[in-house]
Design a binder for these strands. Structure first.
Lengths: 187, 187
DNA sequence: CTTCTTTTTAGACATTTGTCCAGTAAAAGC
DNA sequence: GCTTTTACTGGACAAATGTCTAAAAAGAAG
């Protein structure tokens, strides 16, 4: 849990608050292929990925389509399920062994209400998330598959190093066959 | 400004808070084609649309691509510019005559800090926005243009009544030519 | 009502992207 | 190191979608 403490102390929390915050989280380990969120079940947790890679996906007539991948030091949740407290429309599972610092919605709301700075932290997290998600939505409308791949190559090359191409293809909204063509075109 | 007062009183604010809130907004009128946000300029305002239709768009080699449309009673902002206080990457303009209740980021933050319930309101607004934007992102990855059109037909038929098809097509990530084909297929 | 403008539809053809599949390469397990 | 599985590439063809364009339809203006 030292990592968690370090993360939040870097955000300016004092020792007293830090203790409260860290106590509200629990570290959960995941084996490769283990589920964090299952479609149809309500997921009341949001987490900070400690280690590993986690795949968001849905099954479309038996075939899996990846919609997102979370890696270390990013937040992870099935947003609609977490916020709306309703059954998830997607699955999230570990692509590798890993671990997540988890906090329930109830405990999160408690921290927000009890620690003024944590409210700012949460608002900031939400605002940053909106920016990221909206930029992705924007690109899906405005850019071609090839342009989205090039952008990822430019701005997030570390993802290309680690995430198997079949998953990336899906996130980019193209088939693996087509991603192979794109990669071929670019060189 | 009565509408604004009504909107927030429905959210449970008392008269004292209501006065503060309403005072923080100003109603701005827009003529058809007038700009609310211009690419390259920082937009420090978020608004609640009072009346009219507003188009988000970018120019891609001279051609305009619509990424979103806001109508009455929804919030409107160039998110990245508003949150990051950086130049906007998109344009927003009135598709019809209309008006927006505007509030600056500074005033918004003030309300968040001074009125506890307003903090909850803002957090809720952010959470709901994330859900909506993420669902759209999800659909752009997982559904075909035709399926996205059918979903809009099912879930937001009021948009189809009002928004010219050329703009809808762009929002759905297809060309007007293709949307015409889709509409033809469905009947 | 008539004219002018804007929006929508759709044909013909080009390009992009997907499907199916097999071969190769790479990784994991023993 | 060998075997088995998983990931990646690319050919051939099919389907989806885009481009260009003109005509029809609908809406706005006088």
């Amino acid at each position: 849990m030292e990592k968690l403490k370090y993360y939040f102390s870097a955000m300016g929390f004092n020792d007293n608050d830090l203790e409260k915050i860290v106590a509200a989280f629990k570290l959960q380990h995941f084996k490769k292929n283990e589920s964090f969120v299952e479609e149809g079940k309500t997921s009341r947790y949001i987490g900070l990925v400690d280690s590993g890679m986690f795949q968001y996906y849905v099954l479309i007539d038996g075939e899996e389509r990846t919609t997102y991948i979370s890696i270390e030091n990013t937040f992870i949740a099935s947003v609609l399920s977490f916020v709306g407290e309703i059954p998830a429309l997607e699955n999230i599972r570990a692509l590798t062994d890993g671990a997540i610092f988890l906090i329930s919605r109830v405990n999160l709301k408690k921290l927000v209400n009890e620690i003024p700075l944590f409210k700012d932290f949460y608002i900031n997290l939400l605002e940053q998330s909106i920016c990221g998600i909206d930029a992705t939505r924007h690109d899906l409308i405005v850019l071609s598959g090839e342009q989205r791949y090039e952008k990822m190559l430019r701005e997030e090359p570390h993802l290309l190093q680690r995430i198997p191409l079949q998953y990336l293809a899906s996130m980019l909204g193209v088939t693996p066959r087509h991603l192979s063509r794109i990669r071929n075109n670019i060189r």
